[in-house]
Write a protein that binds this DNA or RNA. Structure first.
Lengths: 257, 257
DNA sequence: CACATCAGCTTGTACCAACAAGTTGAGCAG
DNA sequence: CTGCTCAACTTGTTGGTACAAGCTGATGTG
């Protein structure tokens, strides 16, 4: 056991208190000056310890109020059912899922023409900088920012599906709209990654320190070629994804919660 | 545009330099004292700015060496093919995947009996605290810690598949071994989440500040009930997962990269 | 009672100083 | 030339001070 720096010890003790339940989720921690007395340390040292816990996502602080233990209520997203290839539901999946969970959904839309980034171009199989239709969506649950979603469609699709450039939501859902036009999405390729948010993402999703984002990229394919690429950015502390693959009849009989 | 704190400005300028390529991945940043002169700020202020960038995962620092720009080389894991239900490959999937990528895999095994946590118990449909077989695996790529994997099997399985309690690897792969005994995994339920690492995880995976972990839980099912639960913890900066769902014949013809 | 003010708490920012500890390369002893 | 020592760099830790800024409840005024 090598000697650890004092601010590290402060963090360790407080972490044990937090995970042990001494300070339950939502509770307020002692103030910095109280912790100075408790640990016989300078304010800087106590703050370093608290900052460590904040960067682990355990606590958050606000000026004038103090430090409090983060509470996590995760929202589960079933990615393999999200837009079922065989049974597309009516309307958009987000609103129905959230409403079913007894929460209040809210979303804002924005549509624009944007050049394809390298990331998008590679997936849509178009050239970098080519025009694409960008449908951007900012989603809230009970007025808390939840995720952003940016779907880009290749330019050649617009002639077949002109309503894609319409501002605002497409009532019956874009997938269903396109299916009605004979543009059928018969498969998709999902990529999942995580990282810390960029300053822009942190602002949009109101993310504090110590909360990563979950990145979900879904590229949809027709028989011939990719027809859309959706990048969803989730707040990592509020979301979880799942996939159901194969026969899960043994699972569904007594669904936990 | 409200006035931003000075350490924030420091971070903004350096961030622009980093993402803009002034300091390419792997490059060393100017020392703290040089940055003090450049920004006309105290050492603490400069350090606060650098710490902000570190917590975003952009840079890392080491005592005596300085700050350097993080380089990301991600390893892609195909979760839907990882242990294909219809075509199980020989040996374990990790080693073959890594070797195919031209890298050198390495892994250590540990087997023990452990009580089921609430998380595990719920998924294996056993009581909390029930004995389970824990097969733990620590994986490296080119000697860099990559992921940890903990698979737990319910106790009732051991009578049917006694080799599960053997220490060390099971050469032909546990899935194939169990299939040979008539215990067939016909479906699985995947859950994906992200968060900052616990101190233990940070130590095992040698994770610095600003790097989240990607958590992948796979619960495997036979016709009747769950037969295993695997929790994999990835370094978020080095790994990405993907799922192929439906017909993707349009994708595979000219695979990018 | 309604409402504005303010004292007293909280955290946030910015500075200074000093020493510890890790790394590297110059330079000296053998 | 080899190998060791050490000075001079780097970041890490800990202490201090001062003031800014956000929040809350008590207080006093209309």
């Amino acid at each position: 056991m090598t000697k650890q720096p004092k601010y590290h010890q402060v963090a360790d003790v407080l972490r044990r208190d937090v995970v042990g339940g001494t300070y339950p989720p939502g509770a307020r921690l002692p103030s910095e000056s109280e912790l100075q007395e408790r640990f016989v340390a300078s304010r800087n040292t106590v703050r370093a310890g608290l900052k460590l816990l904040a960067s682990e996502g355990l606590i958050s602080s606000s000026q004038g109020l103090g430090y409090e233990v983060r509470k996590h209520e995760v929202f589960e997203l079933n990615a393999s059912r999200f837009e079922n290839l065989t049974f597309p539901q009516n309307g958009d999946a987000f609103s129905t899922d959230v409403t079913n969970a007894g929460r209040r959904p809210h979303q804002t839309f924005r549509v624009e023409l944007a050049p394809a980034s390298e990331y998008i171009a590679q997936r849509l199989k178009v050239a970098v900088g080519d025009t694409s239709v960008l449908r951007f969506c900012h989603r809230f649950v009970d007025d808390v920012p939840w995720s952003t979603q940016a779907t880009q469609y290749p330019e050649w699709l617009v002639t077949k599906a002109p309503r894609l450039t319409e501002p605002g939501d497409i009532a019956e859902g874009t997938t269903r709209y396109m299916t009605g036009l004979g543009i059928e999405q018969i498969g998709y390729y999902d990529e999942i990654a995580t990282r810390m948010p960029t300053p822009d993402e942190a602002r949009l999703l109101e993310i504090g320190a110590g909360v990563p984002v979950l990145l979900w990229t879904r590229t949809g394919y027709s028989q011939e070629r990719p027809i859309r690429c959706t990048v969803t950015t989730f707040r990592g502390d509020l979301n979880r994804m799942n996939y159901e693959i194969g026969d899960l009849s043994a699972r569904t009989e007594s669904e936990p919660q």
